[in-house]
């Protein structure tokens, strides 16, 4: 399965670099991509506009899908996604505050920086609230995350009411997520962090498999349950925080991709996690391509594309799960 996913990813990268709002001949974009002579404009658009965007989208897709998969395993709950720790809502609140305070134009990094701080603070708060005497029950964590997340969402609404029309437009665009305007600078900062965090998650595949049988059973076979949880939660928070900081909140990738791939490769995390890493990248690159092409030459937010795919799938899961429980 992995070779097929890798081939899909390669095609996604090629398409992502070849298609976009400016109609360029496919032969020329391919030539530019593989370093053959191509017109300067084509080389410029492919290398400086499209490739950074494709790489950031791919890395964020990897991060969200891996984090989603890890959290679903950790919480033993199919509805878990990177949003459950309140990370996305925290990043969103950081971002709208930055836009409201007029800090967005200060530098390319102010907005993502403040969003990142908001994301990590929220995750730390949720974790702190759910932890008692060194133990963090997953149910408390899940409920705490939902509660803090909705508080953040209300705070976002409050800031938006206070904001001016032009600012609201910027906020809505950010909250819907997108990869327009990504440069090699974002690639340099975000991609290593997301990929390193995701790779670290892959090392815990065996522990996740054992945790799926229950925490007590895992303790019984010598898995340090609380430490494993702590490390994995921190990795997921980091990966998601970096992802949403550079691209805005992008819903449902972390929910959709692990479930799709679980149907194909099965629940064993040793196969599922690498599949999520590659499949998540391909999915988000293609979703971003869709966002660029649907109303070409204008763009829609990639969050709209992922949600339009994700919400029906989520509802399907919900119904299937209810039926499975005997409802």
């Amino acid at each position: 399965m992995l070779p097929i996913l890798a081939a899909v990813l390669a095609v996604a990268v090629w398409l992502g670099a070849s298609l976009g709002s400016a109609p360029l001949p496919l032969g020329q974009t391919l030539a530019a991509l593989v370093g053959q002579p191509a017109p300067a404009l084509v080389r410029d658009i492919v290398w400086n506009l499209r490739l950074p965007r494709v790489i950031v989208a791919g890395a964020v897709g990897t991060g969200l899908a891996v984090a989603g998969c890890v959290l679903q395993g950790l919480f033993r709950n199919p509805m878990a996604d990177p949003g459950v720790l309140g990370v996305s809502a925290g990043a969103g609140l950081g971002a709208v505050i930055a836009i409201y305070a007029g800090l967005g134009a200060v530098s390319l990094w102010t907005l993502p920086g403040i969003a990142f701080v908001g994301a990590l603070l929220t995750a730390a708060t949720v974790y702190g609230l759910a932890t008692r005497a060194g133990r963090t029950p997953v149910l408390t964590l899940l409920l705490g995350g939902i509660a803090v997340g909705s508080l953040m969402t209300s705070a976002i609404g409050l800031v938006m009411i206070l904001a001016q029309e032009v600012q609201i437009q910027t906020m809505v665009l950010w909250l819907m997520g997108g990869f327009d305007g990504e440069t090699w600078q974002q690639v340099g900062v975000a991609v290593p962090l997301v990929l390193a965090g995701s790779a670290a998650c892959l090392l815990f595949a065996r522990e996740l498999n054992i945790l799926a049988t229950g925490e007590d059973a895992a303790r019984g076979v010598g898995v340090p349950v609380e430490w494993t949880k702590r490390i994995l939660l921190a990795l997921c928070a980091l990966v998601t925080a970096v992802g949403v900081s550079v691209s805005g909140t992008i819903g449902f990738v972390g929910l959709l991709v692990p479930h799709m791939l679980r149907l194909v490769v099965g629940p064993d995390h040793r196969r599922l996690l690498p599949a999520c890493a590659i499949g998540g990248a391909a999915f988000l690159i293609l979703a971003d391509l869709g966002a660029r092409l649907v109303i070409r030459p204008a763009e829609i937010s990639v969050g709209v594309i992922t949600s339009f795919l994700g919400v029906p799938f989520f509802l399907y899961l919900l119904r299937r799960q209810r039926a499975g429980v005997g409802g």
């Binding site: 976009g20 709002s21 400016a22 360029l24 404009l41 410029d44 658009i45 506009l49 499209r50 967005g104 134009a105 390319l108 907005l111 032009v166 910027t170 327009d180 305007g181 990504e182 440069t183 974002q186 030459p297």
Partner: peptide, 20 residues
């Protein structure tokens, strides 16, 4: 991308243009 495709030699933008 759309702007570059026009091969411009000068572009005027405003503070509300996407910083990226």
């Amino acid at each position: 991308e759309q702007i570059l495709a026009l091969k411009p030699d000068l572009v005027f933008v405003a503070s509300y243009t996407t910083p990226g």
